[in-house]
Design a protein around this nucleic acid. Structure first.
Lengths: 210, 210
DNA sequence: CATTTAAGAGATGAATTACTCTCTTGTCAG
DNA sequence: CTGACAAGAGAGTAATTCATCTCTTAAATG
């Protein structure tokens, strides 16, 4: 009976509190957007006071930037391994559409105001918000397809490799909502696969074989 | 000597004044963005008072929306006729990159704040700002190529036709600046043309001819 | 247990700004 | 020439909100 008296924590502290603050800020961004987000609305949503926010971030722009970073790093796009290039592309684009729908809606809305608040150039701002990875992380998908002999990587233009991700990003920005499975299948089957197969091993004039 | 005394107009009126107001608002949008644009800054730039603005537009959101409309309709994307699909695409994409660089930078920045101010949904907002044309206007380029026998229009997926414009739009949104000629050539020569030729007249298995 | 740190709560200052109202005067219609 | 309309100029209001500061008290540290 004399076990630890279970310390009913009444106050969050450190990383736990910080995560709660950033999530509150993110939720405010999604619901009301950058302009209508106030330090008080974030503090109220996190059930705390604005002093707690200013103790960590110098101003609204810094807080929002940190909230965007936090969301991106806690909601990564999964890199699948299905065994085929087509399967990998369908999976990663679907994951990207889901994991990044809110992200692009928020980032697009806060972009120019954040620039004004931080003094960064458009390019700096984009790299800061997007994580400046772009093609880098997904390259492994193409590398595996190359190793399997599905494609000849060094014969495929970079524009082709970036194409599916550019288009999903485009759709996310234009619709500010999820990308339909039909659209993803169209991108893969009608655009990417025909283009990569034009440069597939032994496919220079592939059809001339028959 | 008794010619008309050349009425030195001291006050702009009607359409002339309205155009000056909308251009002043647009310039403010480009220079300082939506958040930092104030009714007073627009009025000052147009050398008038804010009452003149409120006599025409009920609030800041309406003014900005009108300024965006005005810019789009006074800066249309040229639809060239060069005689070849490749030439037409290069020309129209170049024109789009130039005529729409500022446009996307401004529209992206004002988007979410405008939504809050007007109460429109994201899709309504997009159609309002973009003019909901998208593919419609440029279809004539493909139609002419079809009539010349360059392509077989009804065998080409819609995603292929939209591709170049989606990508230029993507680049404009991501870089918030002009699209390089090299990138446009890459889009046309490495992506669009290989895809449309896959569906060109008598090209099902074209290379089997040789 | 004593000490330090920071969380919770909120009052306050200062600046910005959307929007209204007033008044004078130039411009157009009849 | 006259009357209606709106441009030009600006004062003023009301609300919002970023940011600072104070004070009490819970929780971590040794």
């Amino acid at each position: 009976m004399s076990t630890t008296p279970e310390p009913v924590r009444q106050r969050r502290r450190g990383p736990e509190l910080e995560a709660a603050l950033l999530e509150a800020a993110w939720d405010e961004l999604v619901e009301v957007g950058f302009a209508k987000l106030t330090m008080e609305s974030v503090a109220a949503r996190a059930s705390t006071g604005i002093a707690v926010l200013y103790r960590r971030w110098a101003n609204k722009a810094e807080l929002v930037l940190a909230a965007i970073d936090h969301y991106r790093s806690t909601h990564p796009v999964e890199l699948p391994d299905t065994g085929t290039l087509r399967g990998d592309l369908l999976a990663v684009l679907t994951g990207m559409g889901e994991a990044r729908a809110d992200f692009f809606a928020v980032a697009a809305g806060a972009f120019s105001e954040l620039r004004a608040g931080t003094g960064l150039t458009p390019t700096q701002m984009r790299d800061r918000v997007m994580g400046e990875q772009r093609l880098a992380r997904v390259r492994s998908i193409y590398q595996r397809a190359h190793d399997r002999g599905e494609i000849d990587l060094h014969r495929i233009p970079a524009a082709v490799l970036a194409l599916p991700f550019d288009l999903v990003r485009h759709d996310l920005l234009m619709d500010l909502g999820p990308v339909s499975p039909a659209r993803i299948r169209s991108i893969v089957d009608e655009l990417v696969l025909p283009l990569v197969r034009a440069g597939a091993p032994g496919a220079d004039r592939a059809d001339a074989r028959g």
